[in-house]
Simulated assay, not measured.
Amino acid sequence: MKSSQHEYAQAAFEGIKSLDEDSVAAQQYGQLCHRFPSLVLTNGLRLAVTFFQAKSKNVESPHALYLQHMRNALGLDKSWKEELEIQNADYLHLSRRVLSASVWFKRYAEAILKIEQGTDAPEQEGIL
């Protein structure tokens, strides 16, 4: 039986490896891996997800890909909208799971995409 951390790590690895490492979108995605957890901590999961959805121009945008990869890591079956329509205790639990999974996205963004926290991605305008 795999631990939740193992599931998060595996899904994050697969998501990041599916990107073209040298593309601008991958660099932007790497920056989002660093920024999403802080958005969740400062604004809450609902607002962070809503912000990313608003920034998603299409299903291939870095924001949309990050949300889809996070859903895969968490094993969520429903849409984000449906998942976030829950009671406070469940919402807090989901927020903790998202933050726990986001650690793996940050680690792989640093290891695979070579994106360090605080560095700017090329053509970063409009990421956040």
Rank of each mutant, 00 (worst) to 15 (best):
H93W: 12
Y66W: 14
Q27Y: 04
G15T: 12
S23T: 03
K55I: 03
Y108H: 14
H63K: 05
A89G: 01
E14C: 13
A12H: 01
V98P: 03
E83F: 00
Y29K: 00
G75N: 12
S3P: 00
L99C: 09
D90P: 04
G126N: 02
Y8C: 09
S4V: 15
D22T: 05
G15L: 08
I115A: 06
L113I: 10
K106V: 01
F51S: 08
L84R: 02
L19D: 04
P122V: 11
P62A: 06
L74D: 10
N43S: 11
A121R: 07
K57V: 13
Q124G: 06
I112F: 01
I115W: 00
Q10A: 14
D90F: 07
E82H: 05
Y8T: 06
W80V: 02
K81L: 11
H63E: 06
L67W: 06
Q10R: 14
Y8K: 09
L47W: 01
M1T: 14
H69W: 14
G126M: 03
Q5K: 15
S23Q: 00
L76T: 05
D20W: 11
D22Y: 09
K81P: 06
V40L: 00
R107N: 10
L99T: 10
Y108R: 05
F51L: 12
S3K: 14
A25S: 13
L45H: 00
N43M: 10
I86T: 15
W104T: 03
L67T: 06
